[in-house]
Design a protein around this nucleic acid. Structure first.
Lengths: 356, 356
DNA sequence: TCTACGATTTGGATCAATCCAAAAACAAAC
DNA sequence: GTTTGTTTTTGGATTGATCCAAATCGTAGA
C-alpha cells in the first residue's frame, strides 16, 4: 500500500534482460547468451527451453550492450556525395540488399561533395564504432584520408571513385574499358571525329574515362581529339553542345561522362535543329532507367550501380572478417547498351516495353 | 624482459577511456563526462584543462557505451520503399541535412515495398535502440503496425504515405490540393475532359489524389470523369495512353500520379503521333529535376521532397524530445510548376537554363 | 571564528551484454 | 568403482559511459 515503494516492474518497465530469461529458463546468463548467438555448444534441449523463455518474456536483444563487450556492432557507414542522383540510389539499394542478408545495417550520409561534411560524418561513425565504411569520396578529399581511416583501425572500401593509388579496397566499374567499347562501336559505324563531354579533374573516375578516350582514339589511329570539361549535369551537356557544334570541323559523335550530360546533349542538339543519332551520335554512361525511355532512346555504357553496391558491401564484410588480408579491387565490366541515339538503329521511337 | 608479462599498453592498444582522461587531467571520471556533455556545472578552468587532456590523449567518445547507461542513442531509422527513385533520394537528402545539424545519424533501409523486409528492418532497429523511426510504409503494410511500434515505445513518424487514420505523426504533401491546383489550371485553359492516370488502391497517397481529382471536377461542374489505375512507372504511363486515346470521347488533358507516369504518357502520345501540350495536355506530380528538361518540358505539381524530408526529421526530433506531446501532421502545400506540356506556353523547346 | 549556502566535484552503482577459465555433468574405458 | 575424456554449463570480471546522492570547496554573513 505504501506509495513510496516502487514495485520492481512499475511503469518505467525495466526491459527484459538475459538475466530474466536465465531465471525463467532455469539456466545461467551465459547459456542464454550462447543460445542467442547460436553457439553449437549448447545442448539441444536447453536451447529449446531457452528459446521458449525468450518468446514468453518478449525479450529484445540489446545490440548496443553486446557491442560494448564484444567487438562488433554489425553496422556500417555509407557515404555518398549525391543521394538524389538515381545512380547512387540504385547503388545504395544494392548495398542494402547485400547487407540485409548478413544482418548488418548501415548508416547513410550524403556528403554533398563537401570534404568537411564528409569528415564530420566519418568522425561520428568512429564514435558509433561502425565495423567498416563504404566511401564514395567527395571531390577534393585529402588523399591522406585513407591513411587516417587506417590509423583509426576502421576498414574502408572506396566505391566508384578513389583517392590516391592502390593498394586499398575498391569496388567500381572499369570506366576506361567502357569508354573504349563506346568508341569501338562508333568507329565501326564509320565515325572519325568523336568528342568527349564532361567531368572535372578532381577524381579517379574522370581520369579513367579520359584515359579510355585517348587510348581508344590512339588504338584506332584517329587524329581528331576533343575533350570538354564540365559539370556532370544535364545543364552542362545542354550548354556545351552549341559550343562543340560551332567548331569546324565539328564532331560527328559525342561520348558523355554520364547519362545526365547525355540527356542534356540530346536536348541541346534538338535545340539546334539537329536530329540526335542521325546528325550527331550521342552515347551516355550509366544506363539509367530513363535512358531506354528517352526520345531518342539513349545508347549508354551500362555501369550497373546495383551490382557495384552489392560487390562493395560484400567486400566490406570480407574485410571485416579478415582485416589483415590483401587489399582487393573489384572492378566490374561495363556493357554497351546500344539504342537509337548513336544511329545504329533506325531513329524511330522505340517502345520501352521491348527494351529491358 | 620477460615475454609472458604483457605490458598494459601492448599491441591490442586498449582504447582511451574517460578514466584515462580523468587521470591525465587530475579530476574524476564524472567531471570528464560532464565536460563532454557540455554541462554548465563544471568550472571554466577545469573544463579547459580536461579538454586539453582529451586532445592530448586522442580520446574518442564511445556512443555505444553512453547509450547503454543513458537513454538516447542519437540514431534514427529511416525506411523508404524505393531509394532508386530520385524522389526518395531528394527526400533522404533532406532528412540527412536536418539530422546532421543535430548530431543525429540515420540507418537507412530500402523495403522494396515488401512488408516482410520492412518488418525485419524495424525489428533490427529496435535491437539497435534507435530513438525514432521515419517510415514510408510499404504497400500492404498491416495497419496495426503503428500500434506495434507504439507498444515498442519507439516514436514513429510516417512520411508521404500513412496507414490507418490520425492521430499519428505524419509529414507529407497535400496531394489533394495539388491535384486540385492542376485541374483548376486546366479548366482555366478551357479543358473539360480531364483524366487521371496511375496509382494503386493500397495507400493514402493515392486515395488523396483521387479524392482531389473528384472534388475538383465536382467544384467545376464537369461531368466527364475517367480514372485509370496502374503502376506508377514510366512503362505504365506509356502503355495506358493508347487505351485512353482510343476512347470516345477521349480526354483532352491527363493529370498523372507522378512524373514518371507523366514521362511515359508524353512518350505514349508522341508514339501516337500527337503533340503533347497541343493535342493533349499532360501534368505530372513531384516536379523532379528532369521535368524541366523534358521535351516538351513537363508541367508538374511540385511536392518538394527535400522539404518533406527535413520536416519529417524535425518532427521526429521534436517527438523524441517530448514523447507524450500531441501528435502532429505537417502537410506542405504543393505548387503548380507550369511548363509546356499543358499547352499554356507556346510549345517550343524551353531552355533549361531559364527554368529553375 | 563559525555557520550557511551555492557552486563544483566525486565515487559507487548501474546499464546489458560478452569473455574466459574453471566447474559440473555425463559417458566411456579400465 | 575409479579414472579419463568429452560435452555443457557457469559465475565473476569486463566493456565504457551515465546517474545520483553525497562530499568538498569557497565565500559571504552573523
Amino acid at each position: 500500500m505504501s506509495q513510496d515503494t516502487p514495485r520492481p516492474d512499475s511503469r518505467a518497465s525495466r526491459s527484459v534482460t538475459l538475466q530474466d530469461i536465465a531465471a525463467h529458463a532455469g539456466v545461467s546468463r551465459s547459456t542464454v547468451s550462447l543460445v542467442l548467438r547460436e553457439s553449437p555448444l549448447v545442448a539441444e534441449d536447453t536451447r529449446r527451453r531457452v528459446q521458449r523463455s525468450i518468446k514468453a518474456l518478449g525479450y529484445v536483444y540489446n545490440r548496443g550492450a553486446a557491442a560494448l563487450r564484444g567487438r562488433r556492432t554489425a553496422t556500417l557507414g555509407v557515404v555518398v556525395y549525391d543521394i538524389a542522383n538515381p545512380f547512387f540510389g540504385a547503388m545504395v539499394a544494392g548495398i542494402d540488399a547485400a547487407l540485409n542478408r548478413e544482418g548488418y545495417v548501415s548508416f547513410l550520409a550524403n556528403s554533398e561533395d563537401s570534404p568537411a561534411r564528409q569528415q564530420r560524418f566519418l568522425e561520428r561513425m568512429r564514435e558509433h564504432r561502425v565495423d567498416g565504411i563504404l566511401l564514395c569520396p567527395a571531390q577534393g578529399t585529402d588523399p591522406r584520408l585513407i591513411d587516417t581511416l587506417a590509423s583509426w583501425q576502421i576498414p574502408c572500401i572506396q566505391v566508384l571513385r578513389h583517392i590516391g593509388e592502390p593498394p586499398f579496397d575498391y569496388a567500381g566499374t572499369d570506366f576506361r574499358r567502357g569508354v573504349g567499347l563506346a568508341i569501338d562501336h562508333l568507329v565501326a559505324q564509320g565515325h572519325e571525329r568523336i568528342a568527349f563531354l564532361g567531368g572535372h579533374i578532381e577524381h579517379s573516375a574522370t581520369r579513367e574515362r579520359w584515359q579510355g578516350y585517348r587510348e581508344a582514339l590512339a588504338r584506332h589511329g584517329l587524329a581528331y581529339q576533343r575533350l570538354l570539361r564540365s559539370d556532370v549535369t544535364r545543364r552542362a551537356g545542354f550548354a556545351l553542345i552549341p559550343v562543340l557544334m560551332a567548331e569546324s570541323p565539328a564532331p560527328t559523335a559525342v561520348v558523355c561522362h554520364n547519362d545526365l550530360v547525355a540527356f542534356g546533349a540530346l536536348l541541346g542538339l534538338k535545340r539546334l535543329g539537329r536530329v540526335p543519332g542521325r546528325d550527331c551520335a550521342v552515347i551516355g554512361t550509366d544506363d539509367l532507367e530513363e535512358a531506354a525511355l528517352g526520345d531518342p532512346a539513349l545508347t549508354s555504357i551500362a555501369t550497373h550501380p546495383h551490382a557495384v553496391g552489392e560487390e562493395a558491401a560484400r567486400l566490406a564484410l570480407r574485410r571485416i572478417g579478415n582485416p589483415d588480408g590483401a587489399r582487393e579491387l573489384v572492378v566490374l565490366s561495363p556493357r554497351l547498351q546500344v539504342r537509337d541515339s548513336c544511329g545504329a538503329h533506325a531513329s524511330t521511337l522505340e517502345s520501352p516495353v521491348t527494351t529491358t
